[in-house]
């Protein structure tokens, strides 16, 4: 069990948890993730490690309640625990001096981008960050990102905060400025919804600006065994859990990733509804019987009879 030390609501349906996970805290690097399972019978889902304190043996997870497991995670309070936390998983980010770096994060993608942004800032890079969300309430880690960035531009779909529009509108300006020789752009780092990351890649590709996307495909084991997280990168199959999760965004087939991520949409919705119903049902019912007689060896005589 992995006890929850702190739980804080950052935005509606967005929660920050500090969880005791000493092994992960000790060995993690920016860009890596954990797989968590909240309860017996629970699914395994990947979550980016948003921060870690090796001495305290804790990691920080930022969770947006979208599916069944993330909803359950968002209800956790200090004193409660997560059943399984496995990690660190994935390849660590390459963090070096690049120069001027645009961090483009959408929605809860800011939790994915933040640890690498902080590491890039520590490495002396100048960060020009673009943070977007559907609406002002859903902006997450704005202060944290601002603290490591030279500038932070906020964009919302509805204009409730910052500029109205898409993160790519702002990025397009930066790219143009770079092309005009006004302000260079040496690297773009993006994390968020798949269509957004695809759009970011489309903006930077014509200008050849190196762009890295942190992908979020479906996963089961997270150690390379199941192949469920396979993505097409530069026309070849890659496994996001071991080869990624970060890839050259110009080479990623985002349309394919988007389709594959939708594979269980109906089941996930049904699972969330069924769980709701099950929670209301009697607990005795929850102990499902698979209908098998327990596997018992065939009856044998007592020792006395046998001899």
């Amino acid at each position: 069990m992995f006890p929850v030390r702190e739980a804080q609501t950052l935005a509606p349906d967005v929660v920050r948890l500090v969880v005791e996970a000493p092994r992960v805290a000790r060995y993690q690097h920016p860009g890596q993730f954990v797989i968590v399972r909240v309860r017996e019978g629970g699914e395994r889902i990947p979550l980016t490690i948003a921060g870690a304190d090796a001495e305290a043996g804790t990691i920080t997870l930022i969770i947006q309640a979208v599916g069944l497991t993330t909803r359950l995670l968002c209800t956790l309070q200090p004193g409660q625990a997560i059943l399984d936390v496995t990690g660190p998983l994935g390849a660590p980010s390459e963090v070096g001096y690049e120069g001027r770096v645009a961090v483009v994060a959408g929605g809860v993608g800011s939790a994915i981008a933040y640890p690498r942004a902080a590491a890039l800032a520590r490495a002396g890079n100048e960060l020009v960050t673009i943070l977007g969300a559907r609406t002002a309430d859903l902006l997450t880690l704005e202060d944290e990102l601002a603290s490591v960035s030279a500038s932070l531009r906020v964009v919302t779909d509805d204009g409730s905060r910052g500029r109205r529009g898409l993160v790519t509108d702002v990025l397009a300006d930066d790219v143009e400025a770079a092309a005009a020789g006004i302000a260079p752009l040496d690297l773009v780092l993006t994390a968020g919804p798949v269509p957004m990351m695809g759009a970011v890649a489309d903006v930077t590709r014509p200008h050849g600006i190196p762009t890295v996307a942190s992908l979020n495909p479906l996963m089961v084991d997270g150690t390379g065994m199941c192949g469920g997280c396979r993505v097409q990168v530069a026309g070849a199959t890659a496994f996001a859990c071991v080869d990624g999760p970060e890839f050259d965004a110009h080479q990623v087939d985002f349309a394919l990733l988007h389709r594959r991520n939708q594979a269980y949409r109906d089941q996930e919705r049904a699972a969330a509804e069924a769980a709701q119903a099950a929670a209301e049902a009697a607990q005795a019912e929850a102990e499902a019987d698979d209908g098998c007689a327990a596997t018992q060896p065939q009856p044998r005589p007592t020792l006395r009879e046998a001899r």
């Binding site: 309860r39 019978g41 629970g42 699914e43 395994r44 069944l68 497991t69 089961v220 594979a263 269980y264 089941q267 996930e268 699972a271 069924a274 769980a275 099950a278 929850a286 499902a288 698979d290």
Partner: peptide, 9 residues
């Protein structure tokens, strides 16, 4: 199993 959270096609 109906009580499992993991989706299956």
């Amino acid at each position: 199993r109906p009580d499992a959270d993991t989706p299956l096609p």
